[in-house]
């Protein structure tokens, strides 16, 4: 006998088959293979040999693991630099976006939609072009030096491009919307009556901010920080264009392993380290902040 529940199950299976096949075969399986690769011996001229080989990780984490044979501290330095720069980018985007979210939330009706539209639009501009704009601004013959020189502030062009400063500037610019939208969402939900209630109860503006506004907008701040940190940490386009050979991040090393050095297992091991970091952060986020926040905070 077919039951109503039975035919509903059939429909559910039909609806979920495509995504199951897609994410199963082209997401989970590739991630599994990548994990496997990170433990294989790199072959000559690319390729792999199928034996267990923990030294891909040893090259990066050798000394801490007690294995110094082919350990090179440069990889740990690069990992730490990537973490430090990503952290700096989070702090800067937060500092820029937090007041901006309050600014937008003060508008009403049509004007608010329009301002929100203006803030959201650059997000849809091609990423590579937004990075390119900063090459125009920061390079020795670029717009910034042009302005500073003609204003007489400097005599010789500043070397800004191919420094950490230029990498951070580029990352901040392209990641601003990722920080803005989650913060804005939580600022929008903040009931103005709560601020008034706090003032009514005798709190100074600073106390009101510290005890009411900040705690209530914290979920947006944390969500935004997470979704800014992740792409900043693994980025290789911005350092490649604005950091050159001087400011290498872990993403650049991975790219080299795959497209120049042809050492795929080592590249896979580095990618696993990035993935591990991200998953740990995600786990902390989900356990501490609750569910659904990441999905809601992402580009939706």
């Amino acid at each position: 006998m077919t039951t109503l529940a039975g035919s509903r199950r059939l429909r559910l299976a039909a609806l979920l088959t495509p995504v199951t096949l897609l994410l199963g075969s082209c997401f989970l399986v590739p991630l599994g293979i990548m994990a496997l690769y990170s433990f294989l011996t790199p072959g000559l001229y690319g390729g792999v040999e199928w034996n267990f080989y923990p030294y891909n990780y040893g090259r990066v984490l050798g000394a801490p693991l007690g294995d110094v044979e082919d350990f090179d501290p440069v990889y740990i330095e690069i990992l730490l630099r990537s973490l430090r720069l990503a952290g700096t980018v989070v702090v800067l985007t937060l500092a820029v976006c937090y007041p901006a979210a309050f600014w937008v939330s003060r508008f009403h009706g049509e004007r608010k939609s329009f301002v929100l539209f203006l803030v959201t639009l650059p997000f849809f501009a091609s990423l590579i072009i937004r990075v390119y704009a900063w090459m125009l601004i920061l390079r020795p013959t670029g717009f910034l030096n042009l302005v500073l020189e003609s204003a007489g502030v400097i005599d010789a062009p500043l070397q800004i491009i191919f420094t950490e400063v230029s990498v951070v500037a580029g990352l901040v610019y392209i990641l601003l919307p990722f920080m803005f939208l989650p913060i804005y969402a939580s600022v929008e939900k903040l009931d103005p009556a709560l601020v008034q209630a706090s003032e009514d109860l005798g709190a100074t503006p600073w106390q009101t901010f510290r005890r009411v506004v900040l705690p209530l907008t914290l979920p947006g701040v944390i969500g935004g920080s997470l979704i800014v940190f992740i792409p900043a940490f693994g980025n290789f386009v911005v350092p490649a264009l604005l950091g050159g050979a001087k400011v290498m991040l872990v993403g650049n090393i991975i790219e080299q392993q795959f497209l120049a050095a042809r050492n795929w297992p080592f590249g896979a091991a580095l990618a696993m380290l990035i993935l591990g970091t991200v998953l740990v952060l995600m786990l902390i986020y989900v356990l501490r902040i609750g569910r659904g926040g990441v999905a809601a905070g992402a580009k939706a």
Binding site: C26, P30, M34, I227, P231, A298
Partner: peptide
């Protein structure tokens, strides 16, 4: 897939 760093997904797909 939305929160994973692009580069990780990129090389996983490449190897696959």
């Amino acid at each position: 897939p939305m929160v994973m760093p692009d580069i990780v997904l990129g090389i996983a797909l490449l190897i696959f």
